[in-house]
Design a protein around this nucleic acid. Sequence first.
DNA 1: CATGAATGAGAATTCATTCAT
DNA 2: AATGAATGAATTCTCATTCAT
Lengths: 204, 204, 204, 204
Amino acid sequence: MGKVDDKKKQKRESLLGAAFALFTSQGINDTSISDIVKKANMAKGTFYLYFKDKFDIRDKLIAAKARQLFFHALQKMKENGLTESESATLEDAIIFIADSVINALDEDKRLLGFISKNLSWGVFHSLLVTSDEDNGYSFYEGYQTMLRESGRQFRNPELMLYMIVELINSTCHNVILNQEPVTLAELKPELYNVIRDIIHRFEE
Amino acid sequence: MGKVDDKKKQKRESLLGAAFALFTSQGINDTSISDIVKKANMAKGTFYLYFKDKFDIRDKLIAAKARQLFFHALQKMKENGLTESESATLEDAIIFIADSVINALDEDKRLLGFISKNLSWGVFHSLLVTSDEDNGYSFYEGYQTMLRESGRQFRNPELMLYMIVELINSTCHNVILNQEPVTLAELKPELYNVIRDIIHRFEE
Amino acid sequence: MGKVDDKKKQKRESLLGAAFALFTSQGINDTSISDIVKKANMAKGTFYLYFKDKFDIRDKLIAAKARQLFFHALQKMKENGLTESESATLEDAIIFIADSVINALDEDKRLLGFISKNLSWGVFHSLLVTSDEDNGYSFYEGYQTMLRESGRQFRNPELMLYMIVELINSTCHNVILNQEPVTLAELKPELYNVIRDIIHRFEE
Amino acid sequence: MGKVDDKKKQKRESLLGAAFALFTSQGINDTSISDIVKKANMAKGTFYLYFKDKFDIRDKLIAAKARQLFFHALQKMKENGLTESESATLEDAIIFIADSVINALDEDKRLLGFISKNLSWGVFHSLLVTSDEDNGYSFYEGYQTMLRESGRQFRNPELMLYMIVELINSTCHNVILNQEPVTLAELKPELYNVIRDIIHRFEE
DNA sequence: CATGAATGAGAATTCATTCAT
DNA sequence: AATGAATGAATTCTCATTCAT
């Protein structure tokens, strides 16, 4: 039984870890495969046993990190019992999740730089629909359940989500990294108001 | 002023043109200084007489292209006489400009790819406040004039603009390039509604 | 003898087959051990249990293929009863064999490319004198028998054979692969005439 | 005037010289671009200013060396006044040239190994028809002149030449390098006899 | 016997930048 | 001002071979 497989998983994790550290500290373009394997204490050839090239490992990393981010946000929401509360609206839930994610990114600016620059809708969407191999949870199902349980009707739920995600992603990036044109504290209330507006607009 | 200056300007333009063609067709990362000077019919050394490096010419290009885009949109608005119309609201004007820009980008997808990937708020902002060396027009002044002439009061005009610009930029990118998750025609009405909401939210 | 030996022989054959397919389709230089074992459905290490390296397996292959070629030619000659015919001269026999081999190579151009590029006199000679492990037949003995049975005397039979073989090999290679400077049909009569001349020259 | 061009020519020659030394001493496959530039005392990048890759420089080398070989043989023939002699036949002339080339290759076995392994008919033919850029001499014209001046008629002069060249090339290779199956001294008379036969065969 | 993960030297190629002309 | 030859560090990727399982 899997002593070998264990080792392989460990190597893979090592490479992912090293790549993440380097990507976030010096940028993807300035990180070479050489850098990654040196940091991971492996031979150069080993990299190619696990990943096709730099972009392959980048994509795997983004997916993993973004998934983690959402997973933590959902867990937090469950812990806070928001889902059971009578008065909590759909808006509250979505904003709670957004706030969790934003706070996490604010605390880890490197992660923000990495994810935000590379998170296209394509990646995000495939992340949504693919269920995690470890826990089998699909975010898109969760989203749909939330909408259903709210008892309300929405026109184009996917577009609604797209606009919310893109708005958050694009406005927070510069605000968190450069406090420009406002601070995060100033942005948040306005952002959440607009999110409420968006949801309202899509309700039938 | 003179023949020499003319020639210099011409060389500079040649380089900018060649770089733009290459950046948009093969991407910045895959374009070398060698490629640029070859396309511009110049010697390699000449490049360094006009630009510091690849990123220098990239930034100059983005600014020029984005400025052009807005300038055309404003011109179009003037031609259509929207500014003189009694009933046209501030919302109408802003959406008119947005629509012009979006349509231009939809017709020139390469330009979209180039600008959208590189247009950070920093670049956009410096573009706003800097007045054009040729015609001395500053977009930010124009924006403020528009707000003033509407006779209405807004809380944080810069943040308002920021959110609108980021929302447009981030939602249109993928929709135009991949028609995902909806087509541009489907996105537009929803997008413009949300823009109206944003403006409404910031009114005092 | 037994199951184990059978399995071993089978593995060896698998490797030889895979190597031949790859050598002839992509060339020896562009074929790696990795490619070979992958095609043979084996682990990399297994290769080294049967062959020393790429050149080892190449040499074994050439010998086997060349031997096969001659063996088929001889069989064909026996079937045609050329050997028993009264009027058939030594020249007729040699040209019959040459023609068989040339036709076979013309029909399998990949084999031609492979053999012709790698068939040095050294390999050919060792092929001649070594008797096949399976059927114990030595070509050189056959050649000598042919000469003896012709009842004629030749000065330097080995050199005579050498010149014939080299002439055939070197002229046919390019003609078959590129039809240059003439087609095979055009070459053949001239070639066979020269072979007759060569034999004549060596007769005492 | 060409101070720069002189330097360029010198660099090119340096690279060709280094490549030839290495190709002939360790083989093409075992010679890397790195080796070549190191031997030529240049930076690696410089190689690519003059040649596309290893095979490009190899082809240029073969052509140059083969051309040289023939040129020397022709010069020698003129010096010996063979062309003016009444009694010298076409056969004598061709064999004189062949002998010159063979002797040169016998004295420079490295050159032999290099040329003989790489001299396909394609290369040889392009060498024949292309006139040298330096002295404008085309070997094929010379060959045709020789035939014409002999006052005799030949069926397919190109095929005749092809067979002679291939026979010489293929038989001498192994004989010179390994003295197998005979020595060069033993091969020569037989070889030249066969060449006479070939010429005779093609006469109408 | 068989496996296949791991190695790490080394190959080809690119490219920004310099500098003598 | 303009040129373009030369540089050489840096990068990606391959591959024969070993060896613990």
